[in-house]
């Protein structure tokens, strides 16, 4: 069975190698592939769209400059996200704010005509509102781990690399967060 990661081009290693040799076009393709996850990661950390855009853009430019230090064959996404996250942390500290997550307008009032997906049916409207409020109420270190892991779709290892913490720390923070969230969910 072949698994592909959403947003990750199949010839990523070739693009990275070309970019390392100074190919602007190849790097642009990488930026295009990862701009969505980079922006969302920055938004979760920085807490505002403007700060996230600045952080993601600066992160991509700094990553370009640092490509010479990138270890060939290593996964590019977590390495990139670590740089973006650092930029987002800097902007969050200066802005003194955090992202308060909310539902999309369409998701807040689901159509009664549409059949719910299996996943959506897991949550009724009241419980998902309470669960999101509980996520927003988590301590920042736990909230970030949960948001990056479950909302942004990063693996545990990618969360660890992005936040610059040990995988064991990701596990323990996730565990403590889930314990708190279970109270809201059950």
């Amino acid at each position: 069975m072949t698994l592909t990661v959403e947003g990750r081009p199949l010839d990523e290693s070739q693009l990275v190698e070309r970019a390392r040799r100074g190919d602007h076009e190849a790097y642009s393709e990488l930026v295009h592939a990862y701009q969505g996850i980079a922006f969302r990661t920055a938004y979760l950390i920085a807490g505002g769209a403007t700060e996230a855009e600045d952080a993601a853009q600066e992160g991509f430019v700094k990553a370009w400059r640092a490509l010479g230090r990138f270890r060939p064959g290593a996964p590019f996404k977590p390495w990139l996200l670590r740089i973006v996250a650092n930029e987002a942390h800097n902007r969050r500290r200066s802005a003194g704010r955090r992202a308060r997550l909310a539902f999309r307008a369409a998701a807040a009032e689901p159509s009664g005509d549409a059949a719910p997906s299996p996943e959506a049916s897991v949550l009724d409207s009241e419980r998902r509102t309470e669960l999101l409020a509980a996520v927003n109420g988590l301590p920042e270190d736990q909230r970030l781990v949960v948001a990056l892991r479950y909302f942004a779709g990063l693996s545990e290892d990618e969360v660890a690399e992005t936040l610059g913490i040990a995988p064991g720390t990701v596990k323990s923070r996730t565990s403590r967060a889930l314990e708190r969230l279970r109270e809201a969910y059950d």
């Binding site: 922006f39 969302r40 769209a49 997550l101 539902f103 996943e119 998902r128 942004a152």
Partner: peptide
């Protein structure tokens, strides 16, 4: 089940 609920929730969260 809670983790599945969080994944489902993530698809409904507003990102700019």
């Amino acid at each position: 089940e809670l983790e599945q609920a969080l994944v489902a929730l993530g698809r409904e969260v507003e990102f700019p």
